[in-house]
C-alpha cells in the first residue's frame, strides 16, 4: 500500500487503494454496466421480458415487441454506450491535461463548434434531419478545436491555462453568433432547443458505424499517452526530466479528446455534465493514476448515461425526458455527496 501525498484538499493525505481493490471495483462497474445494457433494452413505454429480448436478437420474427427492440431500443442502447464511453474518456483526458476541475470536454471549443455548425446548417442551409446534423456537428467540432490549438500554442508548446482561455474565447465568439442567429430565426431556435438538450433517441445504427473508426483511433491514442499524462500530473518540469515529450503528449491527447467529444456530440448533441463528473468520481475511487481513471471513466460514464436514459423513459410515461436533462439529476447528488467526504481531492 503506497501513500501518495499529492495535492491535498482536506486534512490527511490521499490513500490510494491497492491493485486488488481497484480491480474488484472495476469488475463491479463492468457488471453494473452490463446490467444497465440489458435493462435499457427491456424497459420502456412497454416492458419486455428478458426472454423476448433474447428472441428478438437471435430468433427474429415479425412481432411488434421485436420491432420495438430491434429498431428502437437496441440502437438507442448502443448509441448510449458509445456516447457514454466517449464522454467519460474525453472528460478524463481534459482533466488530466488542464488540471482544472472546471474544464469539461467542451471547453476547447467542441460544443461551441458543433452547435454553431448545426445552427448554420439548420438556419441558413435548411438541413432538417439528424444525418445532416451529424456531419456538420463533427466537422464544426474538429475545425474549432484545431483553431483553439493554433491560438493556444507557442513555439515552446501549449500552456494548459492559455489553451483553456483560447477555448473560452473562441467558444464565446461562436456562441454569441449562434445565439444571434437563433434569436432572429424561430425555425433555427426551435430545432436547436431540442438538439441542445442532448438525446440518444432516433439515431439509427447506420448513423453510428461511420463515427466508430474515429472513436477507435482516439481510444488507442488516449491509452498511448496515459503514462505520460501520469508524469505530467507532477508538473511540466518533472515530467520533462522523466523523458516525457510534453508538446507531443499534449497534441495527441487533444486530438484524442476532440475526436471523442466531437463524435459524442455529433451523435447525441452537447451533453455536458457526464464528462465533467465521472472522471472526478473515478479519481476519488482509484487515486491519482491515469490508466485506472481512464478505465473507470470508460465504464462509469455509459452507466450514468444509460441509467439516466432509462429513468427518463420511466418517470413521465408515456412521455420521455431527453437523457441530457436527466444526467444532471442522477449524477449531481452523487457528486455532491462524494465531494463532502474528507477524502475527495483536487486535481
Amino acid at each position: 500500500m503506497t501513500t501518495l501525498a499529492l495535492r491535498r484538499d482536506g486534512p490527511g493525505t490521499i490513500t490510494a487503494p491497492g491493485p486488488r481493490r481497484r480491480l474488484l471495483g472495476l469488475v463491479a462497474a463492468l457488471l453494473a454496466l452490463l446490467a444497465l445494457l440489458v435493462l435499457s433494452v427491456m424497459i420502456g413505454s412497454t416492458s419486455i421480458a428478458p426472454s423476448a429480448v433474447w428472441d428478438a436478437l437471435f430468433h427474429p420474427a415479425a412481432d411488434i415487441d421485436q420491432f420495438a427492440i430491434r429498431d428502437y431500443r437496441l440502437p438507442r442502447t448502443v448509441v448510449g454506450l458509445i456516447v457514454g464511453v466517449a464522454l467519460g474518456l474525453s472528460g478524463a483526458l481534459i482533466q488530466a491535461l488542464t488540471r482544472n476541475p472546471l474544464a469539461d470536454p467542451g471547453i476547447l471549443g467542441v460544443h461551441a463548434g458543433a452547435s454553431f455548425a448545426v445552427t448554420v446548417a439548420v438556419g441558413v442551409l435548411g438541413v432538417s434531419d439528424i444525418q445532416g446534423y451529424m456531419w456538420f456537428a463533427f466537422a464544426g467540432a474538429l475545425i474549432v478545436t484545431l483553431l483553439v490549438l493554433a491560438l493556444g500554442s507557442t513555439r515552446q508548446g501549449q500552456s494548459p491555462v492559455v489553451m483553456v482561455l483560447a477555448g473560452v474565447s473562441v467558444g464565446a465568439v461562436l456562441g454569441g453568433a449562434r445565439e444571434a442567429l437563433q434569436l432572429t430565426n424561430p425555425a433555427a431556435f426551435d430545432a436547436m432547443r431540442s438538439w441542445n438538450a442532448g438525446s440518444i433517441v432516433g439515431r439509427p445504427l447506420d448513423l453510428v458505424w461511420p463515427i466508430l473508426p474515429f472513436l477507435a483511433v482516439a481510444l488507442v491514442l488516449a491509452l498511448a499517452v496515459s503514462g505520460s499524462l501520469n508524469a505530467m500530473a507532477l508538473g511540466d518540469d518533472l515530467a520533462a526530466a522523466q523523458g516525457v515529450r510534453l508538446a507531443r503528449t499534449r497534441v495527441l491527447a487533444i486530438i484524442a479528446l476532440t475526436l471523442l467529444a466531437g463524435g459524442a456530440t455529433a451523435l447525441a448533441g452537447p451533453i455536458g455534465f457526464v464528462g465533467l463528473m465521472v472522471p472526478h468520481v473515478a479519481r476519488w475511487i482509484v487515486g491519482p493514476h491515469q490508466r485506472w481513471i481512464f478505465a473507470y471513466s470508460i465504464l462509469l460514464a455509459p452507466s450514468l448515461l444509460l441509467a439516466s436514459d432509462i429513468l427518463g423513459r420511466v418517470v413521465m410515461r408515456p412521455g420521455e425526458i431527453p437523457v441530457g436533462i436527466v444526467t444532471a439529476f442522477v449524477g449531481a447528488p452523487v457528486l455532491i455527496v462524494l465531494v463532502r467526504r474528507k477524502k475527495a481531492s483536487g486535481l
Binding site: D9, P101, L102, G272, F273, L276, M277, H280, G324, I325, V326, T327, A328, F329, G331, A332, P333, L335, I336, V339, R340, A344, G346
Partner: peptide
C-alpha cells in the same frame, strides 16, 4: 475546490 464541485453539480441540475 469543494465550492467549485458543488457549484458544478447544482448548476448542472438547474441548467437541466
Amino acid at each position: 475546490f469543494r465550492l467549485i464541485i458543488v457549484g458544478i453539480g447544482v448548476s448542472a441540475m438547474l441548467g437541466s
